[in-house]
Amino acid sequence: MDMKRDYYEDIQLLDSKVLWFWFLMLVAALATFPFIAPTYYVYMANYMAINVIVTIGLNILVGYTGQISLGHAGFFAIGAYGTVMLMSLLHFPFLLALVAAALIAAFFGFILGLPALRLEGPYLAIATLGFGMAITQVIGRWELFGGRMGVEAPALSFFGIPVMTDLGRYFVTATIAFIMVLGARNLMKTRVGRAFIAIRDSDIAAETMGVNLVYYKTLAFAVSAFYTGIAGGLFAFLLGFISPSTFNFILSIYFLAFVIVGGLGSIFGSVMGGIVMTWLLLELDKIQELPLIGGMLISFSENFMTVAGLPNISSIIFGLIIVLLVIFEPLGLYGFWIRTKIYWKTWPF
């Protein structure tokens, strides 16, 4: 075991030269990746980065603060529509619009956090769910937002440099995601994060130790919504086109699934969860193209099910993953990771 000489070493991110090395390697790998990978994978990486941000945002609320939300698609929508609208109607520059939209989402998060102060379990679930539904309904019926038909994202430029391709978007998205991951990690290691966790583990003790429940519960909602809003804004440019039906109830559940798969209460887990689940989501869409299984599935569908309904198999697999993980590995991928690490540390015993 290494000895620590300084309290700072307890809280700093990279406490050894080796870790610094790997950190720089990671940055270098992330920077060179889009130049060598095919465009589709760059697109996928963008998608992953966005989902990582959402997953962390939702994890701050669900995993760290112990509140439930079935309405995060609503914040996602606010972020997406907010960014697009601020840019196309008020001609905000991209970054300002993105942050402003995320702040609007955070404000809505704060509003939603108010009733959440008194609600628990199923009651909170239904309140957040209602919020998510209401947001998409309002957006879908308001002409300003393009109604049911949706709106197109304006041309994206970053500090005057036009960003048109997946490669360009990659640098914007991945950089923002990277910063937000580090930010969340820092936040959770300091005073505010500890207050969140304290509320989750014992709100009564937290209160008597001076944690203002009203403030920190609403703050958790706001921070969570801010993250989700940022992701939503980036998502609008990934698709280039958004419509209300994108932000439905199922999307909220998918977000929850990301958090669960990654591991409740773990930033690193959320990163893994966002990446793995996005990959799965995109791969399952073309499951019939898989070499062996694809053919089997198609013939099975022809005989017993419908071929048109085959893509819905992703819903089945996602559902199974959620159910099985919650039952057998409540810590998700993070739990796997920890156990593998321990296994190799003590190997061969």
Binding site: N186, G193, M209, G210
Partner: peptide, 20 residues
């Protein structure tokens, strides 16, 4: 957490400490 009331770090300063 017991030190909570004696500390001041908020969301922004908490999320952005990268230096000693």
């Amino acid at each position: 957490l017991g030190r909570h009331i004696h500390m001041k770090t908020g969301v922004l300063s908490g999320a952005t400490f990268f230096r000693r």
